[in-house]
């Protein structure tokens, strides 16, 4: 049994079958990549995990519990954190405040009416936020306004925010899309480091095959809404079906 079990998931948008009969099992403490050509349904599938979309058919179980019908904040509280394609952070707040919010969410739950306490005097939360910044080499930026950071740093901050909640499953949707090579390599190193240092399961959607083959332990190839193959990276590389799906896309061969 994987930590995330997807069975027979289907999703239609009007006449378009974005997903049909998707089965997927993500094993605990592995990095599982989902790849596929544009419009294959990767983002749609991810959105079904986090409560943004509800599939028409099938089931999505996280750690033995169904996530279907739950709100995004409830699913996060179950232990799933999500990193977005364009970094979603609290731009108007400082870096430290950005880190404190997920810590509060994890400790105090989805809503807490702590309107009279001084947040900076909460040693537990400030300490955790600072430790996480330290671990991500961002301690020097703590007073900075999050909006004024570089794109690479925003991505780093977003990942740090997700990790500070000690999620059991981290979902990443094209975390290096639109990044320069140097930033992409930094992100790969960061994710490798996270994988080594923590007990965490990572599911990653990615276009960049360099990223996929540097990180993934298992790969699922999605095409036209259905999984074509699921295997270890070495077997995916030369797989004829995969070449077919990516016809004309030279990235796989590279």
């Amino acid at each position: 049994m994987g930590i995330l079990e997807v069975k027979g998931v289907g999703k239609r948008f009007g006449g378009l079958h974005a997903l049909s009969d998707v089965n997927l099992s993500v094993k605990e403490n592995t990095v599982h990549a989902i790849i596929g050509p544009n419009g294959a349904g990767k983002s749609t599938l991810l959105n079904c995990f986090v409560g943004k979309l509800i599939p028409d058919t099938g089931s999505v179980m996280f750690d033995g519990q169904s996530v279907l019908g739950r709100k995004p904040h409830e699913i996060n509280q179950m232990g799933i954190s999500r990193v977005f394609q364009t970094p979603e952070i609290f731009s108007d707040l400082t870096v430290l405040e950005n880190m404190m919010i997920p810590c509060f969410a994890q400790r105090d739950g989805a809503f807490s009416m702590a309107a009279y306490a001084d947040m900076m005097k909460d040693k537990d939360i400030v300490g955790r936020a600072e430790a996480e910044l330290e671990a991500m080499n961002m301690a020097d930026k703590r007073e900075m306004n999050a909006a004024s950071m570089s794109r690479g740093d925003k991505r780093r901050l977003e990942i740090a925010m997700c990790l500070s909640q000690q999620p059991r499953l981290l979902l990443l949707d094209e975390p290096t899309a639109g990044m320069a090579r140097a930033d992409t390599n930094n992100t790969i190193d960061l994710l490798k480091q996270i994988k080594e240092e923590r007990d965490i399961t990572i599911a990653i959607i990615e276009h960049d095959m360099h990223v996929v083959f540097s990180l993934a332990e298992r790969i699922t190839v999605l095409a036209q809404g259905t999984p074509l193959v699921e295997d270890v990276p070495d077997n995916i590389k030369g797989h004829p079906k995969v070449r077919e799906a990516y016809l004309g896309e030279t990235q796989v061969a590279a």
Binding site: V50, K71, P72, H73, N76, Q77, S81, R82, F84, E88, I89, F90, S91, D92, L93, I101, P102, A105, Q106, G109, A110, F111, M161, Q165
Partner: peptide, 14 residues
Amino acid sequence: VKSNQQRMNYTGLN
């Protein structure tokens, strides 16, 4: 809430 409701919801806050 003002800054980014989407991030807030996906951070486990209602």
